[in-house]
Amino acid sequence: MNLAPDLSQVKRITLTNAQLKVTILTLGASIQSVYLNGYEHSLVLGSSKLADYLGSAKYFGAVVGRVANRIDKGHAVIDGKIYQLPPTLPEEHHLHGGPAGTGSRNWSIIEQTDDMVQLQTKLADGEMGYPGNMVVDVFYRLLDSTLEMEIKATTDKLTICNFAGHSYLNLDGTGSILDHQLCIKADHYLPVDAGLIPTGEVTPTAGGAFDFNQLRTIGRDDYPALDTNFCLALGHRTVQTVATLKAPITGLTLNYQTTEPGLQVYDGRHIHLDADSNINTGELNAYAGLALEAQHWPDAINQSHFPPILLAPEDTYQQVTRYVFA
């Protein structure tokens, strides 16, 4: 079975207002670029070549799911029934909804205006091993110098649901994010094993390598490898600022806001994109971008003390995440 989408059917959508120009691809509902008035470079990483979004630029700006992040060896028990979800090779674990998750599907355009687009995809019962027919909608809206992403999902059968936007940020547009300053308002984080699966511990950040409660340079001195879930809350809440990213060259600041109880932060240490694909300038290599991924905690279906990710037919999944540029 060929899981690859037909790239000839992919559409590119441009949203504009007085402050922002944003391009969205129907492939993966991906944010391809974000331009702020007065700056020539995109504030997120992107490729000019669609094929890259299935290869070297996989997940760049995509909406990943139906369960973002990792599920230990793809094992899930839902309402007493065992489900085996496929591994996302070369990993042994199920990652970002599997090899044909939402990040590599071609979404449909439902509605579009100058500063808003609604995209939709439909996931079949049994697709990627999950129970339930699911309808997923993503809304991108420009609000002054803010890009808002809203995700909604419904199901006809009890299932698991945890979406995330996967944009890589670099507010200076070149080089590395290791010189950016980062603040994360989280008192705890999740330690992981060698396969990046949470151990089950919920560990305080205070005074440790993962204490970003005040702005600090991401850097390499005492620098922890960041592919880490920061615990923001024990459940869904109102939109609030959970992280701040500040760039040294431009002085630009991003305030990252979300409703979600977790924030996966990934330092992009495996990034590589050729210079002729980069929508900015130069080759992209390790640490070229920082992924801030608002979501529920990873492997939650196998950790009973984590915020639950079950979605019932009578409920609607909803996430709101905002990129507020200043």
Rank of each mutant, 00 (worst) to 15 (best):
T113R: 07
P298E: 13
A275Y: 05
T228S: 06
A100T: 13
A206W: 14
I184Y: 01
V324K: 08
A247F: 15
L43Q: 06
A312W: 13
A76S: 07
T102R: 01
G195V: 14
F210I: 06
Q295Y: 00
A29R: 04
P87Y: 12
A209M: 08
R220K: 10
L284N: 01
Y130E: 02
N213W: 10
S30I: 00
T217V: 13
T146E: 12
I271L: 14
Q319G: 04
S47D: 06
I279A: 07
H305Y: 14
Q120A: 14
P261R: 14
L290E: 06
Y323P: 05
Y53T: 03
Q112Y: 05
G103E: 06
L284M: 02
Y39C: 10
T159L: 05
H166C: 04
E283M: 09
L27E: 02
D267F: 10
G195P: 06
G103I: 04
T121P: 00
I177R: 00
D172V: 02
Y189D: 03
T23W: 09
I31N: 05
I31S: 04
D114L: 09
E92H: 12
P248A: 11
L215R: 09
K246A: 15
I151T: 02
I279H: 09
G235Y: 07
T258L: 06
V138Y: 02
N285I: 13
G173M: 08
F212S: 09
G282D: 04
H166R: 01
E150H: 07
K58F: 10
Y323T: 11
E40D: 12
D299H: 01
D172N: 03
N69R: 08
G80E: 01
T159I: 04
V44W: 09
F210G: 03
P224M: 06
F230G: 04
Y35F: 13
W297M: 03
L143P: 01
L310I: 07
A209Q: 06
L292I: 14
H96D: 15
Q295C: 03
A29I: 04
G195T: 12
A29M: 04
P298K: 10
L226F: 15
H270K: 07
S30N: 00
V117T: 03
Q181H: 15
D115I: 07
